[in-house]
Design a protein around this nucleic acid. Structure first.
Length: 241
DNA sequence: ACATTAAGCGATA
DNA sequence: TATCGCTTAATGT
């Protein structure tokens, strides 16, 4: 925000920023220009809240770079990680859920860059070709994913849940490295346990066991999956009575 | 099949 | 040096 009240940030945002983002990829340069001129660009250090659960949903966002962790707090004060958002996705789109407040807290899992717009503009954006269908797709995918996790929590055992969670992480946010696929942002045992409703100790023991068998490689805050197929087998293993 | 408690170690800031 | 991330063993449910 500048002193004259305009919302444009220092250098004019480059159009290539949005050119390949799914919600805007079908737009002409001129339309992208319009949208960018309405946007605020902001960099967030690792571990800060972009917005908080219950807060007034006054802006919506698209993640250009980095990763966002969507978390909720239970009655007893424990954190639950709902999902992670990769670059190119919209988030904080409360109005798409018919809400005026944010339903969860968004924390940066790594240093991130995001554009945001005032929520008042939400109803005008579907005029842009592809935006509406893309947001429906995003909302649908996320609901499906959370739905799957509910079934998972209820039916699968811890080892399978952690295996599934790890697979989702590398599928959605994985980066190719020397000896496998690495989760592309810093992630602790605690984080993984909050994703799978278990304890960091159990996660630590599982990762140690998997590492001994060559399925994964991990150091502090970093996890590499070396043998995805073996993890798939574990995740599909039927619960034993 | 898990969680919890406790102790200790190396990495990181 | 203090804190954090992590591991492991022992014990509890």
């Amino acid at each position: 925000m500048t002193t004259d009240g305009s919302t444009r940030t220092l250098p004019r945002l480059d159009e290539s920023l949005l050119l390949h983002m799914p919600p805007f990829s079908r737009l002409k340069r001129e339309q992208i220009r319009q949208i960018l001129d309405l946007a605020v660009s902001r960099r967030y250090p690792e571990g800060v809240a972009v917005f908080e659960e219950g807060g007034e949903a006054d802006r919506f966002f698209i993640l250009l770079d980095g990763y966002i962790r969507v978390i909720r707090i239970t009655e007893t004060g424990e954190q639950i990680i709902a999902l992670h958002i990769p670059p190119g996705q919209l988030f904080g789109i409360a109005k798409a859920l018919g809400r005026t407040t944010y339903p969860a807290t968004a924390i940066t899992a790594s240093e991130s860059l995001a554009l945001s717009w005032p929520m008042q503009l939400w109803d005008s954006f579907p005029a842009y070709d592809g935006f509406a269908t893309e947001t429906y797709k995003t909302v649908g995918t996320r609901m499906g994913e959370m739905n799957n996790r509910i079934v998972e929590m209820a039916t699968q055992q811890v080892e399978q849940r952690v295996a599934s969670a790890l697979l989702r992480l590398v599928n959605q946010t994985g980066r190719k490295v020397e000896d496998g696929i690495e989760v592309d942002f810093p992630i602790t045992r605690q984080d993984l346990s909050e994703l799978t409703a278990t304890t960091l100790h159990t996660v630590s023991r599982l990762l140690s066991a998997w590492e001994k068998d060559g399925l994964v490689k991990s150091r502090r805050k970093r996890i590499v999956v070396c043998d995805p197929h073996a993890l798939v087998l574990i995740s599909h293993h039927a619960p034993k009575a």
